[in-house]
């Protein structure tokens, strides 16, 4: 085991949303986080990305608590929110410029991660004119500007067509094959199948779940208090 999300607790006012979430994470592994709407999946990802500050808990990676070291967290973790974090009026290239320095951007476009995502196909197109799949690929491209080891994805293939979804899943498996770790919040069974590990988030706590392709059983498990 390379890391662990340990006993994360997060309250909104007096409401406890996360009541001690613990998930082991491995280098090269992928974790599907499944839960009903409002169960706290996005909150957990935001806490792990450093957007929200938890009441308590640790995000251990190679022995270091990333939540205590912002610089290390920024270098190690990339977060792609559910919405598209793009400046709509600007081109894909301008959007990338916000997150990359010039040299890294050129290198990445000529043969690095951005090329793998296929972003160079629509560099000069304004973000507002991109398709859903392109927008998601561009969002991921923006997020991975620091060559992260962990990718946090919030419903990454929601509302995408089949081709776009498969292309993204291919990218994710390639990312993991190179030693990267993915933690994704999802309602999509295809994504759950593609992950090496599945966790159910319900009532603010996480329980491991062995997904065997039976969607009804998974739904029943989510309904249990």
């Amino acid at each position: 085991m390379t890391g662990e999300i340990r006993d994360i607790r997060k309250n909104y006012g007096k409401t406890a949303v996360l009541r001690g979430v613990t998930i082991p994470v491995e280098r090269g592994g992928s974790v599907a986080l499944v839960g009903a709407n409002g169960s706290g999946k996005s909150t957990l990802l935001r806490v792990l990305a450093g957007v929200l500050r938890p009441q308590s808990g640790e995000f251990l990676w190679e022995g270091v608590d990333l939540l205590r070291s912002r610089a290390l967290l920024e270098r190690t973790v990339a977060y792609v929110p559910q919405g598209t974090p793009l400046l709509e009026e600007l081109s894909a290239l301008d959007n990338l410029r916000l997150w990359y320095d010039r040299e890294t951007l050129e290198a990445s476009l000529s043969g690095g991660m951005l090329r793998e995502l296929g972003v160079q196909e629509f560099l000069k197109t304004p973000a507002s004119r991109l398709s859903g799949g392109m927008r998601k690929r561009l969002s991921i491209g923006c997020a991975i500007s620091r060559d992260p080891q962990i990718l946090l994805l919030d419903e990454p293939t929601a509302a995408l067509d089949l081709a776009a979804r498969e292309r993204l899943l291919d990218y994710f498996s390639g990312f993991c094959a190179r030693g990267g770790t993915i933690l994704l919040a999802t309602h999509d069974l295809r994504e759950v199948e593609a992950c090496t590990q599945c966790c159910l988030l319900s009532g603010g706590v996480v329980t491991p779940y062995e997904y065997d392709g039976d969607a009804r059983r998974l739904a029943r498990a989510l309904e249990r208090p």
Binding site: A49, G50, V51, E74, P85, L86, L87, E88, S128
Partner: peptide, 19 residues
């Protein structure tokens, strides 16, 4: 209004996460 109503909240959130 397009300058404000069409801006992405998520850009700010991510920038915030990046310090």
């Amino acid at each position: 209004c397009p300058l404000f109503t069409r801006r992405s909240e998520e850009v700010g959130t991510l920038l915030s996460a990046r310090g």
